[in-house]
Design a protein around this nucleic acid. Structure first.
Length: 202
DNA sequence: CAATAGATCATCT
DNA sequence: GATGATCTATTGC
């Protein structure tokens, strides 16, 4: 079993502009219980000016946590079937979050395989927002959870190997579809694939 | 390999 | 009552 680094990211890490937080989350470790994976793909969702973001419609029962303190989880249910994990950024009172789109599984791989029997390879276990929440056992009960303490955390590797960040348009949205707010680790096989037509720009 | 249909429900109009 | 930050299987070249 992989030894999990203990340095949990502090709240100050998240209390910054959403795009900065998004880019800096790449290469970090998402841990839930014994399962853990490296974040290889994210998308930034902003506030009122970003029509693609849930926060654009203002505070509702659902979007409440987006306007709350940073470093908390925002988990929503979509398409009647899947859940997506976001991390709240920006200071309290300002909306902004980072959608975690894909992980490179590093620990608890057998657990993930049990949760996602349809995955045919390791890199397919968490290579998408819905797959990731299934593999990691994340659901709506984690909505609002504090990621700086508890079973669900984000941590930094003691020494992170360098990697190249690529950017491109976000996936699966109608509004602001050309904003380059999707970031991923170039060349990583665990980054989600949607056909060559939706590939990002370098 | 590319395109598309179906599953299925919380949220908001 | 429509829609959506998805995934999978299936169909068609």
């Amino acid at each position: 079993m992989l030894r999990i680094p203990a340095s949990i990211l502090p709240r100050s890490f998240y209390e910054r502009p959403t795009v900065e937080v998004a880019r800096d989350l790449l290469g970090k470790l998402l841990v839930h219980g014994r399962a853990a994976g490296r974040i290889v793909e994210v998308e930034a969702y902003l506030g009122a000016e970003d029509l693609a973001a849930h926060a654009a419609r203002g505070v509702t029962n659902r979007t409440r946590v987006l306007f709350g303190p940073p470093g908390h989880a925002y988990v929503f249910f979509i398409y009647g079937m899947y859940e997506c994990l976001n991390i709240v950024a920006e200071p309290e009172g300002t909306a902004g979050c980072v959608l975690i789109r894909a992980l490179e599984p590093l620990a608890g791989i057998e657990i993930m395989q049990r949760r996602r029997p349809k995955a045919r390879s390791i890199e397919d276990l968490a290579s998408g927002p819905g797959k990731l929440t299934l593999a990691m056992g994340i659901s709506r009960r984690h909505n609002g959870a504090d990621l700086t303490r508890g079973a669900l955390t984000v941590r930094a590797f003691p020494s992170a190997p360098p990697f190249e960040i690529a950017a491109g348009p976000r996936i699966g949205i109608r509004h602001c579809a050309d904003w380059p707010l999707r970031f991923y680790i170039a060349g990583n096989p665990c980054v989600s694939k949607h056909g060559s037509s939706r590939a990002g720009i370098a």
